[in-house]
Simulated scan of single mutants.
Amino acid sequence: MAEDWTLPWAGGCRCGRLRFRVEAPPLLTMACHCRGCQQMTGSAFSLSVAVPEAGFSVTSGEPVIGGLHGAHRHFFCDHCKSWVFTRPDGLGDFVNIRATLLDDATWVVPFVETQTAEALPWALTPAPHSFERWPPMEEFPAFIEAFAREGARPR
């Protein structure tokens, strides 16, 4: 249902030196409540929009790897240190953008929330799919298909 999306979108870090562009419809919106995401965001959870890697590009600035420097590469602005996106290792060809760094993030509602066992008790979201840990990876194609039909859209 790519016709449902008004693209492209732009976004960037807090200082504006690192900018990106999205030219493909998102696969999924998610909130992760794990302690690592809480620590990296300084908030109750990490809110992200997964987009196909082929539909994502950095248009200005040079991202640097931050976070734990592990298999899941977390990219930050070198100047303001904003966590901008993640390229998860071994989970497919997508990029997880920090949703609130889109120029217009008002439409983003998590479709899936994970790691609720670590959630702050007051911080659960209206996501229709909620898991104490990570759902099995084989379930994600069904979530992506359902999000294409039912997920929130920009107004």
Score class of each variant (00 low, 15 high):
residue 13 C to I: 04
residue 33 H to R: 11
residue 46 S to N: 15
residue 22 V to N: 00
residue 72 H to Q: 08
residue 119 A to N: 09
residue 110 P to T: 06
residue 141 P to R: 04
residue 143 F to D: 00
residue 42 G to P: 08
residue 57 S to G: 14
residue 57 S to H: 12
residue 134 W to Y: 14
residue 93 D to L: 07
residue 19 R to C: 05
residue 127 A to R: 06
residue 99 A to E: 04
residue 140 F to K: 01
residue 136 P to R: 15
residue 98 R to P: 00
residue 127 A to W: 06
residue 75 F to P: 00
residue 118 E to D: 14
residue 94 F to W: 13
residue 41 T to I: 05
residue 20 F to T: 02
residue 81 K to D: 10
residue 49 V to I: 14
residue 121 P to E: 13
residue 119 A to I: 03
residue 32 C to Q: 04
residue 32 C to R: 03
residue 52 P to W: 07
residue 54 A to D: 14
residue 15 C to F: 09
residue 89 D to A: 15
residue 73 R to F: 06
residue 116 T to K: 11
residue 124 L to M: 10
residue 58 V to L: 04
residue 52 P to M: 10
residue 18 L to C: 09
residue 114 T to S: 13
residue 74 H to I: 02
residue 45 F to I: 04
residue 36 G to M: 14
residue 52 P to A: 10
residue 89 D to T: 04
residue 108 V to N: 06
residue 123 A to I: 00
residue 111 F to L: 06
residue 65 I to P: 08
residue 89 D to S: 15
residue 15 C to R: 10
residue 126 P to D: 13
residue 22 V to A: 00
residue 42 G to Q: 05
residue 113 E to D: 13
residue 142 A to P: 03
residue 122 W to T: 00
residue 119 A to D: 09
residue 116 T to A: 09
residue 115 Q to D: 10
residue 133 R to K: 14
residue 39 Q to L: 13
residue 51 V to P: 03
residue 129 H to Q: 07
residue 42 G to A: 05
residue 76 F to L: 08
residue 32 C to N: 05
residue 19 R to Q: 15
residue 79 H to S: 11
residue 113 E to W: 08
residue 29 T to M: 08
residue 10 A to T: 15
residue 143 F to H: 05
residue 109 V to E: 14
residue 108 V to K: 06
residue 75 F to G: 01
residue 37 C to F: 08
residue 72 H to S: 11
residue 18 L to D: 02
residue 123 A to V: 04
residue 28 L to M: 12
residue 36 G to I: 05
residue 40 M to W: 11
residue 64 V to T: 12
residue 68 L to Y: 14
residue 104 D to N: 07
residue 139 E to Q: 15
residue 36 G to L: 10
residue 128 P to N: 09
residue 107 W to M: 03
residue 44 A to Y: 12
residue 35 R to V: 14
residue 54 A to W: 07
residue 120 L to M: 12
residue 68 L to A: 12
residue 133 R to W: 09
residue 25 P to H: 09
residue 129 H to M: 07
residue 76 F to N: 09
residue 22 V to H: 04
residue 138 E to D: 15
residue 83 W to V: 01
residue 118 E to M: 12
residue 95 V to F: 01
residue 30 M to Y: 09
residue 27 L to W: 08
residue 85 F to E: 02
residue 57 S to D: 13
residue 84 V to F: 01
residue 126 P to W: 10
residue 14 R to Y: 14
residue 36 G to Y: 10
residue 117 A to T: 09
residue 130 S to T: 12
residue 109 V to C: 10
residue 78 D to H: 10
residue 122 W to V: 01
residue 128 P to H: 07
residue 133 R to V: 07
residue 84 V to E: 01
residue 52 P to Q: 11
residue 35 R to L: 15
residue 64 V to W: 03
residue 107 W to T: 02
residue 131 F to T: 00
residue 98 R to F: 01
residue 106 T to Y: 02
residue 137 M to W: 13
residue 111 F to C: 04
